[in-house]
Nucleic acid binder design. Structure first.
Lengths: 168, 168
DNA sequence: ATAATATAATTAGTTGGCTAACTATTAGTA
DNA sequence: TACTAATAGTTAGCCAACTAATTATATTAT
């Protein structure tokens, strides 16, 4: 427990000097608030790289594809591509291309809806479900471990701060 | 002040039920820790969309391109593409293609290094600098405003929590 | 001095994101 | 009923990211 360190992928920030210059032009630019937000996005960037570089190397699985496959995994009766796009927050064009590759690779299958000639229903294949059952436990374990450096209390604090940032 | 709400782009999460099932298999999977991390990444996702959808629509400027242009902006004597790649945390191949488009669009220029025949030096053009001077103030203002929902004290708390997540 | 190795940048090919334009089908309305 | 609207999905074309392979130049070692 503890001792976990994310120490890769340090992207160059705007310098504090540069930010101060802009703040002179527009006093409402709060330099430390900008730096905090950049730090927040940088932390997210490092976490995403930590998690998804592993999945990419081991299973050729990207963040977007995992999102889509989790939604499919949870849609036991299949789902329309348009619904899938909506739930994954990507365009239908993106889903269309991704499904094409997933069907090519035997991870998903699609059926045409009998009551509506325009519509389709897609679902994971057996191979797709087996794949998810194989990768998800270790994925969620890695995910949980990333929060191990925080105490219970700090985790509650963070939940509250995230809610406030979103404005509710 | 206050009242700012990020309310778009709600991606579907793994259900708590599903997470509990995996936690039965691997007890070290702490369900609330996983949910916290997903919430953290989701908040980051919403912030990035809020900021970069605006820049994309107004100026055809993506997150990656902004990162690179900020580094160029801060490299007043120019910089080698390989250094640029390192500082932006992307591959040299990515930088190579991006520079090609930026030069095509008149935002950057490149010179060959006289002392090393392999090397290049790239820099923003006058047009590129003017562009950055135009967009950065409002960009940093938007950035700062995203933290407006937090008090000074909460901002300090968040800095501490981010440091702890990273493990130092 | 030459051969082997390392480095800088580019290119080819894949994925995942986008917008815009298109086809097909359904639903709504005059 | 026939015309118009809306909806579902696909396609074309672009950008940004990746890996792997290639070219050209420097550096190192034998």
């Amino acid at each position: 427990m503890g001792g976990f360190v994310l120490n890769l992928n340090k992207r160059e920030f705007p310098t504090r000097e540069a930010l101060r210059q802009f703040a002179k032009q527009i006093p409402a630019i709060n330099v430390s608030a900008v730096e905090l937000l950049l730090q927040f996005l940088q932390t997210s960037f490092e976490i995403q790289h930590y998690i998804f570089d592993i999945l990419e190397k081991k299973y050729k699985l990207s963040e977007g594809k995992l999102m889509v496959m989790i939604i499919l995994y949870q849609s036991s009766n299949g789902i329309a591509p348009s619904k899938l796009a909506e739930k994954a927050c990507v365009t239908r064009a993106t889903i269309s291309a991704m499904l094409h590759r997933m069907i090519r690779d035997g991870l998903a299958c699609s059926f045409s809806n009998s009551t509506d000639g325009r519509a389709k229903v897609v679902a994971l294949t057996e191979k797709g479900r087996v794949f998810m059952d194989e990768i998800l436990p270790e994925h969620f374990l890695r995910t949980a471990r990333l929060m191990n450096n925080l105490t219970e209390e700090e985790q509650i604090q963070l939940v509250q701060l995230l809610k406030k940032i979103k404005g509710n």
